[in-house]
């Protein structure tokens, strides 16, 4: 039998809560997103619960696919994405969290490659390009947290003496920039599109239907939940009330993402990667340099 102390029990509990509740939160977020987007476009929009109705319907459909391997990878994608989020919510190591996230994303990309279809392949290639574009900033964010508060562990960071945002404001801005990739919003929604009648059809998800598409949707709900939590982490310190502050700011950031999504056209991949790398190089580096100097430097 494994004996755990109180704080470890808390971590196990938050991990389990994440697994159970994240789809609910993520689904609601998607519903609200669609509603706000519709309003911005002068439409009324679907009911808030529409994403859930969609997924339930997808789950009932007949299994249709190009080959079996692609669905195999999708299940792995979902499992590892849930694992990634659980790592975060159970207070795990930020870097390991990023690596697990990468692994999950690679299963998703492999699924699209496995389909061996023109549209899903171009989607996969673009998704990969997006990963290459945002990965430096995401890694630098973890480095920033470590240099600011002395630990990679989420469980240490949530009880830090001061919120990380005070020390890594530029990294926060850079991180928000690459979040647009992660939330699959314009101008960086190169790998997939919300509407099937564009040049890449549905890009990376072209060949998925029925249950597989439902799994992808659910995986994205898990994903947006931990991304929101990651934004909130910048504002959290030992004061428990700060969690509410963090979530508030995170939702505000999400609203801004929706606004950007609706006001920008998709950019070319060259601009996407160039700008993301420049942002990471400039914002990330300057902030880390400042932290080094504060630490006493070399």
């Amino acid at each position: 039998m494994i004996l755990l102390n109180a704080s470890e029990w808390t971590r196990v509990a938050t991990g389990i809560l994440y697994v159970l509740l994240a789809p609910l939160f993520g689904g609601l977020l998607a519903g609200v997103d669609r509603r706000i987007t519709a309003r911005m476009q002068g439409r009324k929009g679907p009911p808030i619960l529409q994403p859930f109705y969609d997924v339930l319907k997808l789950l009932e459909k007949r299994r249709v696919s190009v080959n079996k391997l692609q669905n195999f990878f999708i299940v792995l994608f979902l499992v590892f994405l849930v694992f990634t989020g659980t790592l975060f919510f159970s207070g795990g190591d930020l870097l390991l969290f990023i690596f697990a996230f990468t692994l999950a994303a690679i299963f998703f990309i492999s699924a699209a490659y496995a389909a061996n279809s023109p549209y899903s392949s171009i989607g996969a290639e673009r998704e990969l390009l997006q990963m290459m574009a945002y990965e430096p900033m995401v890694l630098l964010t973890a480095v920033g947290f470590y240099m600011a508060n002395g630990s990679f562990k989420v469980s240490d960071l949530v009880v830090a003496p001061r919120p990380a945002i005070l020390l890594i404001p530029m990294i926060f801005l850079g991180f928000c920039y690459v979040l647009t990739f992660k939330f699959r919003k314009s101008p960086f929604d190169l790998s997939t599109s919300h509407h099937g009648h564009q040049e890449i059809v549905k890009g990376i998800t072209t060949e998925f239907s029925g249950a597989s598409l439902a799994w992808i949707e659910i995986a994205h709900w898990y994903e947006s939940t931990f991304l929101i939590a990651l934004i909130a982490l910048f504002f959290v310190w030992s004061n428990p009330l700060s969690i509410a502050l963090g979530i508030g700011v995170a939702l505000l950031v999400y609203f801004l993402e929706i606004l950007v999504d609706n006001t920008f056209a998709r950019v070319k991949w060259q601009l996407a990667i160039r700008s993301a790398w420049i942002v990471a190089g400039v914002f990330g580096f300057l902030n880390l340099l400042a932290l080094t100097l504060m630490r006493g430097g070399k």
Binding site: S110, S121, E125, E135, P136, L139
Partner: peptide, 16 residues
């Protein structure tokens, strides 16, 4: 971090 991201790209496309 930049080098690792490039690494990610060329290995994964090979895997694909």
């Amino acid at each position: 971090v930049f080098g690792s991201s490039a690494t990610l790209f060329f290995w994964t496309k090979w895997l694909g």
